[in-house]
């Protein structure tokens, strides 16, 4: 079933919509939350909360890129759960701290707006990068995969992967400076 078909089922509240959603994206959502939540019970709870969040959001939302949107939903659920429990997740923390070097510091009551703007700016920057570089960057910093995992996926050596990620972060910093964010 396509993402469009899935959104239609959920929109129309049709029988089997939830089962279709779980069938299509259950493993994928679990994989995303497993990188952030180490306890399998938390993972199941997170994914279950994710289905509920999707059900609540659609309608009125009708995401154009459903898979990416769903990934953001489950990732945010998992991060919120991790924060509430106070657990550290070394792999995610390492990726986040690496990326933080390239970003302006947060500040003030307009953090929400600033985060959205920065997200758009990073998206614009990434569209100017090669597809493989873009993918490697997001696998490392959005999907929170380890460098070795990213290397395997991209068919690169680990040193090459580290080098690519380092260079793209530097280019991101330059881009954000030029755009006035830094």
């Amino acid at each position: 079933m396509t993402d469009g078909g899935l959104v239609e089922l959920i929109w129309n509240r049709e029988d089997g919509a939830l089962a279709a959603l779980q069938r299509a994206y259950g493993p994928w959502c679990r994989a995303i939350s497993e990188r952030i939540l180490t306890d399998p019970r938390d993972v199941e709870e997170c994914v279950s909360d994710c289905w509920l969040a999707v059900w609540r959001a659609i309608p009125p939302a009708r995401p154009e890129h459903f898979k990416g949107w769903l990934g953001a939903v489950v990732r945010n659920q998992a991060l919120a759960m991790a924060r509430r429990s106070g657990r550290q997740v070394p792999l995610v923390d390492e990726a986040a701290l690496e990326l933080a070097d390239a970003l302006p510091a947060p500040g003030g009551p307009e953090e929400e707006l600033q985060a959205a703007e920065l997200g758009r700016a990073i998206s614009e920057f990434l569209r100017g990068e090669k597809r493989e570089v873009r993918a490697a960057f997001l696998r490392r910093y959005w999907y929170a995969e380890g460098v070795e995992q990213v290397a395997v996926r991209m068919g690169w050596s680990v040193p090459k992967t580290k080098s690519v990620l380092s260079r793209v972060k530097n280019r991101l910093r330059v881009y954000l400076e030029k755009e006035g964010y830094l």
Partner: peptide, 24 residues
């Protein structure tokens, strides 16, 4: 800073997130 970076990267265009999942 850690939470901030995670928050910001979470706002990237979903279309790019989908694409990154396809590239192998």
């Amino acid at each position: 800073r850690r939470d901030w970076a995670m928050e910001v990267i979470g706002r990237v265009d979903p279309a790019l997130i989908e694409e990154a999942d396809r590239v192998r």
